[in-house]
Design a protein around this nucleic acid. Structure first.
Lengths: 153, 153
DNA sequence: TATTGTTATACTCTATAACTATA
DNA sequence: TATAGTTATAGAGTATAACAATA
């Protein structure tokens, strides 16, 4: 028979408090999806930020580093390495901005265009797999509620 | 008049593709809430992982490092430093596990108990502020949908 | 043989300060 | 004076390999 002064031990971990917090749940869900993202995008040698940057360039030909920073909430020094690596791989090109010689417009190469098309297809498939337990209506609701948390306006 | 061969530039960044992905939105929302978490918890000198660990110990007296790892999806080497720092600050104590001498049960000290109570109050207030644009029903729905993504079962 | 906890290590992500070229 | 981009650097977070003590 255990003495009342014995230290207690835990059979089942009670996580109810943390699970009552939106921040905790959002972080866990994001990490879960990233965990599925990494191996599938490793085929293209793309990390999450590489993919976000490449996709934004694909949909915004001529976008600048500064605009990438604002759109993705990144610090400018942290974008330099990402963009340089994509350029070295021949996926993007830098062209001088037509209205501001300080700035550099970013553009996809044909190789980059082909890679983005494949990677975005993979991302869309991953999206469905990662949210397989949600209905289409639930997925739409979830995205709307998440955007109410982080977006301006 | 611009020449047709001039490189294009971007006026407004089109982020629609990324915003169609649950993973992207969950990450952005989590980072937004963490951004509010950091300055408010800096008062207690607690980072997000410190808070999660301390809160789990508060609600699970005698929990082991291994159980912390499983509950929070952490690797065991990465918990060592967190637990050691909390112990050095006098917030938690290690006691030998009553049934397994390999394991160490973690317990709050009186100082740790007092700190967790304040920190959890702050977290609850932060929760309401960070999700101020959501109704109570929406907040509940959001948490339920996020858990459907990352939880087993 | 398997598990708990630990050390050492490395890679990614993130943040700040300081510099240049241009606006 | 302010902004776009860059360099250097430092701090967190996360990952694997290898080890000692115990089960």
């Amino acid at each position: 028979m255990p003495d009342a002064t014995d230290p207690p031990y835990v059979e089942t971990v009670d996580t109810r408090f943390l699970e009552s917090l939106v921040g905790y749940n959002a972080r866990r869900a994001a990490l879960s999806i990233i965990g599925q993202f990494l191996p599938r995008m490793a085929v293209y040698d793309l990390r999450p930020l590489d993919f976000s940057v490449l996709s934004l360039i694909a949909h915004n030909a001529g976008i600048t580093s500064r605009q990438l920073c604002t759109a993705l909430s990144l610090q400018s020094p942290n974008v330099v390495g990402i963009v340089s690596a994509l350029e070295k791989r021949g996926l993007i090109e830098r062209r001088t901005h037509p209205h501001d010689r300080r700035a550099v417009g970013l553009h996809l190469t044909p190789d980059g265009t082909a890679l983005v098309q494949e990677a975005e297809k993979t991302a869309a498939t991953l999206e469905m797999d990662a949210t397989a337990r949600l209905t289409a209506a639930e997925r739409k609701t979830l995205i709307r509620l998440l955007q109410k948390i982080y977006s301006r306006g």
